[in-house]
Amino acid sequence: MNQEAKAGEPKPPVINNSMRFRTEEAFPVLKSHFGDAVRSLSDTRPDRHILVRPGFLPEICKFLRDDPDWQCNMLHCVTGLDQAETLAVVYHLFSMPKRHFVVLKTEVLRDSPMVPTLAHIWPSADWLERETFDLFGIVFEGHPDLRRILLPDEWIGHPLRKDYEMPTHEKLRELGL
């Protein structure tokens, strides 16, 4: 390996990994269907994502689930993300028949993080959204049962936000916890 590096021309690494991301291909399709609701395609590496407006998220997801070209029948993951000014939610949609991933992202304001729920589109969103709510405080509107899932019900704050401060023992004792 060292010799190859010396020869100049760094060979691109061979990584056998057949996960297929079709986010780039999905972007123009979604753009033509939903117009302004679909904001942009990121240029992150190695995975890219499509930034969408939160209000249109359920419609876009329903389209991706039902459209015969996309058939995303599984919501593989829901992730909260703290981006300093905004909070974001990242959705990894997977299609088992077509074997591809589409990554959607939506950004909300820190003060009033409200995202419509996807629990009626994919039941798996139920718990994944509850977890995101628990750890980031992002409220999923219309969620059937939005309670904390990992932390105790009395917990204060949302620990995966970057500005979260762990309450001291004194503070906890004051609160009777």
Partner: peptide, 22 residues
């Protein structure tokens, strides 16, 4: 590692374990 984001999943005994790293 370079800036970016990455999702990867693997077949674990209990199902698909996936990591999402930013």
């Amino acid at each position: 590692p370079p800036a970016g984001e990455c999702y990867f999943r693997a077949e674990n005994p209990r199902g698909e374990l996936a990591f999402y790293v930013v």
